[in-house]
Design a protein around this nucleic acid. Structure first.
Lengths: 220, 220
DNA sequence: CTTGACACTGAACATATGTTCTGTTATTAT
DNA sequence: ATAATAACAGAACATATGTTCAGTGTCAAG
């Protein structure tokens, strides 16, 4: 728990860097002797000595008596990439698709990969799905034709969150910042020059999901 | 090269699935005996037998005489994630920062991770850098305060590409779709309701980079 | 039936590899 | 200077682990 404070010595860093590159290149961790060869450490016991320190500092995990039994933490890349299913289009004139809550397994073909660091910290990736924006009717939400919006499944929103909503009275899907204020709903466009929409009957707005990320790929 | 055609037997699949989960959980590949234990294969030689087949079929690579020397191909996650340096802000009233072309090594702290699949196919990650949009002056480019734009280093643009430009005559940075038409430059806003800017003297526009990706994180 | 390819067994073997231990050198504190 | 702690060396050791090989059973082609 308590760390010394001196952080990482050059040798610690050298070992970690080697672990990372070796693992990236070969797909399995190096042996103690291989680490020694590439970090100018002549004795296996010294490498072992540093590996134990790195484990203490929580940079790696080790399994005793296991060859190459080193788990490089932190940069555990598997955990940094999330595949989000692209389930359909979002169009102003139509209800948007929302995957069922038991919808779980991903279809590798129709998913987009997003670095987890771009997503809100606490979110479970299973609750996320993506939609492609169709048409230019979301321009006042600063979302363009072809953009991808990553949504989080939810039926309720907190004030200030950007949500996708279905407006019963005018049969329209729209993206707005949501505010519930003394019984009436205020929908604010992302473009601050636009006037808000005030809706006195909250039952008219059906919250489809919360916008978590907007991605615009400028290809070509 | 030529594959049999019968694809993967249940045992092949079982082994691959185990390799993947073991690697994800422990950070290093399993030994032959561990594979056998978890796939109901009693003999190490049979596991070895299947591993050789999987290598033949290009699902894995093996290093002989190396403990746990298995490289699970295909899901080589390392290659799917790109770290792009976040080098500064882009503000309408100031020139934007552009990293020098010999700028190479990344600072792990100030980078954003992006799945390579989101980026244009041919781009070299070294040519990419990211800027955070500051202020609401880019609204007509459908880019909001706080958005992150990923740029590609370039001094010239093809028609139809979205570029960041510095306008000499009015001391302004802006994001626009670029068109060079019979000697004059047409700058089109992303918002199609806006009128284009026509500039007869092309020397006034300095192309700072090409917009490759726009990311908007709706946190909270 | 015979042949041969394929899937599999079990054990022996060689060695790659983590572990441990004794001792030396360097660094820092008292 | 002296003591104490950290950093390192080298070798011996135990074993985890890949490799090999002589067989067994199965099944389809000839």
């Amino acid at each position: 728990m308590a760390r010394k404070r001196t952080g990482l010595s050059p040798r610690h860093k050298k070992i970690l860097a080697f672990l990372e590159s070796f693992l990236a290149e070969r797909g399995y961790p190096p042996s103690i002797r291989e680490i020694g060869d590439h970090t100018q450490i002549s004795s296996t016991s010294v490498v072992n000595y540093y590996l134990n320190q790195l484990e203490e500092m929580n940079y790696i995990e080790r399994e005793s008596n296991v060859s190459r039994g080193i788990n490089l933490l932190k940069t555990s890349l598997a955990n940094t990439l999330v595949s989000i299913p692209l389930v359909g289009n979002i169009v102003a004139g139509e209800p948007m698709p929302v995957p069922a809550s038991d919808f779980s397994y991903y279809d590798p073909d129709s998913g987009i990969d997003v670095a987890r660091s771009l997503l809100p910290a606490g979110d479970r990736p299973e609750d996320l799905y993506a939609l492609r924006v169709h048409g230019e009717s979301m321009i006042d939400a600063m979302v363009n034709d072809g953009d991808i919006v990553v949504m989080k499944k939810t039926n309720q929103a907190r004030n200030g969150e950007m949500v996708a909503i279905w407006l019963n009275d005018r049969d329209e899907t729209t993206l707005k910042y949501f505010y519930l204020e003394n019984g009436q709903v205020r929908l604010q466009s992302a473009n601050p020059t636009m006037k808000p929409i005030i809706i006195s009957d909250p039952s008219i707005v059906e919250i489809q999901g919360k916008v978590v990320l907007v991605i615009r790929q400028l290809d070509q």
